[in-house]
Structure formats: structure tokens, C-alpha cells
């Protein structure tokens, strides 16, 4: 009898340990950070998956953005969004001179590669091209952050606080909006 109880207890302990280990390995992925990345290629890669004009933009993209899985990268994207003055036109995601990024409307596609090519190529009526101006790794961080604004990312990697007063809740608290194609504002 006593032995049975002991065995039951042991089973409990092993189970709890297994659950803790599983949880820990999940959170490790979230916190993963690469310190010594190899230098990027001299030229930004030439992906142009959506056309420069609105319209047939929703070519399904095979490429995923690894930065979207790591809290550090998304937070770096948030920092760069301010420091590279994306906010100058997109106003912390709410839009102003440029279109809003926190809503469900996507003019040039909502996939990570679409955002990547928007930053690299620029878009008509104002979005400048940042080719050779922003390193690839940072473009992917920015693309991840842009998607977090409308809740497209996992909750645990989205930034959960803002350093300044923001017109909206934190990216983590914003609900997921289903992306819809949209034409540019007239």
C-alpha cells in the first residue's frame, strides 16, 4: 500500500517536471536571441513578390519571417519603428501622412514578404525605398513589428508596453484583425 502511494507520488512529480520542462522549452524559443549573426549580403535580396501598384498583390508567399517568433526581434522592430522615423508618417501605427498599420486594411498585402518589399522597394505616393539603407535583419524585425500592430503575431512575442503615450493599447493587447485587401486612400 505504502509502496503504491509512493509510486503514485513519483508519477506526479515526473509529470509535473515534464510539464515544467515543456513550458520552459517553449519560453526559450520566445526569448531566443542571436548575437553573432553573419554579416548580411552586400545587396538586399531582390524579392519583389507583390507588384509595385495595388491590385494583384496577394501572391501567396512561401517565405516566413523568423523574427516573428522572437520577442526580442519584435521589440527591436518597435524601437527601430520610432528611431528610423516610420512614425513620422505612420504615426505609431494610427496613420497620418501614410496609411494606418494597426487596422485590417492592407494595400500591398499582409504577408511578411509584402511588408519586406514595401520597405525595401518603397511604394507610390510617398513611401520611400530603404534599399541599402536598412540592413536586412532590421527590415525583418520591422516587418514583424508592423504585423504585431494589428495582432497578427503570437501574443507572447508581441511587445507588451510602450515607452511613450500611445493612441492605442499595447500590441500584445490588441485583438487580431483579419487582413482585408484595400485600395490606397483616394
Amino acid at each position: 500500500m505504502l509502496r503504491k502511494v509512493f509510486r503514485l507520488k513519483l508519477l506526479c512529480v515526473v509529470n509535473v517536471a515534464a510539464i515544467v520542462c515543456a513550458l520552459m522549452s517553449v519560453s526559450c524559443q520566445r526569448e531566443k536571441r542571436v548575437f553573432e549573426s553573419s554579416p548580411p549580403p552586400a545587396q538586399s535580396s531582390q524579392v519583389t513578390l507583390s507588384q509595385i501598384r495595388p491590385g494583384a498583390q496577394t501572391a501567396a508567399s512561401p517565405a516566413s519571417n523568423d523574427a516573428e517568433n522572437h520577442a526580442y526581434d519584435v521589440n527591436e522592430g518597435k524601437r527601430l519603428f520610432t528611431q528610423y522615423n516610420c512614425s513620422g508618417c505612420h504615426a505609431n501605427g494610427g496613420g497620418g501622412i501614410g496609411p494606418a498599420l494597426m487596422d485590417e486594411k492592407w494595400i500591398y498585402g499582409s504577408e511578411p514578404v509584402n511588408i519586406y518589399s514595401t520597405i525595401i522597394e518603397g511604394r507610390p505616393n510617398g513611401m520611400p525605398s530603404f534599399r541599402n539603407k536598412v540592413p536586412d535583419s532590421q527590415v525583418w524585425q520591422l516587418a514583424a513589428y508592423v504585423r504585431s500592430m494589428s495582432g497578427q503575431l503570437r501574443k507572447d512575442v508581441s511587445p507588451n508596453r510602450s515607452d511613450d503615450m500611445m493612441p492605442h493599447k499595447s500590441e500584445q493587447a490588441s485583438e487580431r484583425k483579419t487582413p482585408q485587401n484595400s485600395s490606397p486612400p483616394q
Binding site: R33, E36, S38, P39, P40, P41, S137, Q138
Partner: peptide, 9 residues
């Protein structure tokens, strides 16, 4: 490692 300046090729 970890500083804000990205590597340049």
C-alpha cells in the same frame, strides 16, 4: 555582442 550597430558587409 548585442550592441545596436549592425554588421556591415
Amino acid at each position: 555582442p548585442g550592441n545596436r550597430m549592425p554588421p556591415h558587409n
